[in-house]
Design a protein around this nucleic acid. Structure first.
Length: 429
RNA sequence: GUGGGUGUAGCUCAGUUGGUUAGAGCGUCAGGUUGUGGUCCUGAAAGUCGCGGGUUCAAGUCCCGUCACUCACCCCA
């Protein structure tokens, strides 16, 4: 590394070619699929009043307590960069009146958490989130989960695993915590240090401890649904049977835990092997959030796009293969040809042909190399001979075949359908 | 916040028990073809060996500190 000052700050990255081609592809596919499910995009600010997050995520959550970028602005307002997307969307919906309470919305954008970075974890990261608001019934949960599976396979992702559980109703929580504590008490001194702390604070978290001894103990616990109301159990069963009918493969995992406070009923997670320790691609669930005198009920998920990118490239997808090279590279010899080519280039672009040329007046060989490196499909050569004759050499870079054409012929060839590069069918090798 | 690993050319890395002008491959640029890319050949540019201090006749190599990157824990996408 040269000077550290050229680097973005810790945990944040420039999204640049070639990786950016994959980001663009993901976003295009996403918008297409979400439109099919009749979801609309919403773009909320990346900053909110800190209270928005405290109220919706729970002000005892780690995300709120120690991971937010919070500050006081010049007006004395307590603001934070958003650590997740749901709170802002719900704030928006709550403020938009009755009609918007049936909102079906999605967002794509950066989120910020002040954590120590590691594989799959960044301080600025990007999420695709979907919120289906105002239909408090299992069909809404199943629809969103089906949508999520659809998006993942449309991106070309393989070998992901969906696991489902229920958080129960708010009034179930105390019973679950008490029930787990009672069941764990005999083994309390065999739990790891973290889990002994969790026993007091949040016994649910013991279920997904990575420590082997804790896992053994957790394996023998009754499923959390045992401590829940019949309503919670029925809701979960209905979601699962709907997913079976939609042929969405999910696994029920009674040990699955989701951290944010706002979840009720269904919670789920999608993981992918080969992401390292942070193997969750996505997490979702049903929630009830109170803003002012309104309670907004919804179901949704957030996907970590950096992790998706890691999984896709790990599958062998080369982001560079998604680049959109220029169809034509213009090559000039001499100042007059250079000047004419600038005009021709603009004219081609106005007619829909992507093209480029070397602007530094380098040697023909250097220009050819540049055209080749840019992966241009064609090269148009213009030198003294062509300037005299009023012609152009059109060279096909794939087979090396070169033809001499006049202006009408050239335009015809380059603007007709067959000779234009289709961005989605690149050559492979 | 806690712990481990790593910092040598644009990239990937080599550098022997400390020993003269720090190397390779890829990439870049140029030439071999004064009008032609992708292959081949030749050459060139490019490194304050992360930074600071220390030990030593001598430090890329050893010691200390520091910064950065990285992996893991807590927690989470």
């Amino acid at each position: 590394m040269t000077s550290e000052s050229f680097q973005p700050i810790k945990g944040m990255a420039d999204l640049a070619p070639p990786a950016i081609y994959l980001w663009q592809r993901l976003e295009e596919t996403t918008r297409d699929i979400l439109a099919r499910y009749a979801f609309d995009e919403v773009r909320t600010p990346v900053m909110e009043r800190t209270a928005v997050f405290k109220r919706s995520l729970g002000d005892t959550t780690d995300v709120v307590q120690k991971e937010m970028y919070s500050f006081t602005d010049r007006g004395g307002r307590d603001l934070s960069l958003r650590p997740e997307g749901t709170a802002g969307v719900i704030r928006h919906v709550a403020g938009s009146g009755q009609a918007a309470q049936d909102a079906r919305l999605y967002y794509i954008g950066p989120m910020f958490r002040s954590e120590r970075p590691q594989a799959g974890r960044y301080r600025q990261f990007h999420q695709l989130g979907v919120e289906s608001i105002g239909a408090p019934c299992p069909a809404a949960d199943a629809e969103v989960i089906a949508l999520q599976a659809h998006v993942l396979s449309a991106w070309g992702l393989k070998d992901f695993r969906m696991e489902l559980n229920t958080r129960g109703l708010p009034e179930d929580r105390q019973r679950v915590a008490d029930g787990l504590r009672a069941a764990l008490e005999p083994d309390l001194d065999r739990l790891c240090e973290d889990c002994r702390r969790r026993y007091a604070q949040n016994p649910l978290r013991i279920l997904d401890c990575k420590n082997a001894a804790c896992r053994d103990i957790a394996d023998r616990l009754p499923p959390v649904t045992e401590f829940m109301s019949a309503e919670a159990r029925t809701y979960l069963k209905e979601v699962i049977s709907l997913l079976e009918r939609l042929e969405i493969p999910v696994t029920e995992n009674p040990r699955l835990v989701r951290g944010l406070d706002y979840y009720v009923h269904t919670v789920w997670e999608i993981t992918h092997a080969g992401l390292g320790s942070q193997d969750a691609l996505s997490g979702g669930g049903r929630y009830a959030l109170t803003f002012g005198n309104q309670t907004i009920e919804g179901v949704g998920f957030a996907m970590g796009l950096e992790r998706i990118i890691t999984a896709l490239t790990g599958q062998g997808l080369d982001p560079g293969s998604l680049a959109k090279p220029p169809s034509v590279w213009l090559i000039s010899q001499g100042a007059a040809a250079f000047d004419e080519n600038l005009v021709l280039m603009q004219s081609l672009r106005l007619r829909g042909v992507s093209c480029a040329m070397d602007l530094r007046g380098r040697s023909m060989k250097a220009q050819m190399r540049a055209a080749n490196r840019a992966n241009s499909r064609y090269v148009v050569i213009r030198g003294d001979h062509e300037m005299e004759q009023g012609t152009f050499q059109l060279k096909n870079m794939a087979d090396g075949v070169q033809e001499e054409l006049d202006m009408p012929e050239l335009m015809q060839r380059l603007t007709s359908g067959t000779d234009r590069v289709c961005p989605d069918t690149e050559e492979e090798e």
